[in-house]
């Protein structure tokens, strides 16, 4: 079932407000979420929404970010889309933390997507839409 759906303006303040709203909704509908999974959801949501605002819509006030959250079978599906041209997953985007190279570990960019891959159950990018599933059961 869909537990949250909203279109938001392209600003980091709107992201903050929306994540606060979603945290409240999650707390009401799924109160037993373990703290570290709640942390993961909060982090992933911010990454998806921030990326849509910054890289998708380039902070243009007339462009919106669509956010939808579905809950079923102990799993959340987050769906975020923007009005940008979409992005392709490149080697840079995928740079992981499986390295001891200081320059890579302390790089200034491309930190978000690899973290999504580490934290989420699945990540699917279709043009300007990103679908992420998160397991709510501790394994």
């Amino acid at each position: 079932m869909t537990i949250f759906e909203k279109e938001i303006p392209s600003s980091f303040d709107a992201v903050q407000f929306t994540v606060d709203e979603i945290d409240v909704v999650l707390g009401e509908i799924i109160p037993a979420i373990p703290t570290h999974i709640f942390f993961k959801i909060d982090f992933i949501l911010r990454e998806l929404l921030n990326n849509a605002v910054e890289h998708g819509n380039h902070f243009q006030v007339d462009k919106r970010v669509h956010c939808r959250i579905d809950y079923s079978d102990h799993q959340l599906t987050l769906q975020v889309s923007d009005e940008g041209e979409g992005f392709s997953v490149t080697d840079d985007t995928l740079s992981t933390y499986d390295t001891d190279d200081t320059d890579i570990l302390l790089r200034d960019r491309n930190r978000g997507y690899p973290l999504l891959l580490e934290m989420a159950k699945t990540v699917v990018v279709i043009g300007s839409k990103v679908l992420v599933t998160i397991d709510l059961i501790e394994r």
Partner: peptide, 17 residues
């Protein structure tokens, strides 16, 4: 503080540098 995102992490790294 208990909330963080990758921009926040990058801020910490830049302060460290």
């Amino acid at each position: 503080n208990s909330r963080i995102d990758s921009t926040g992490v990058t801020f910490v790294i830049n302060v460290y540098k």
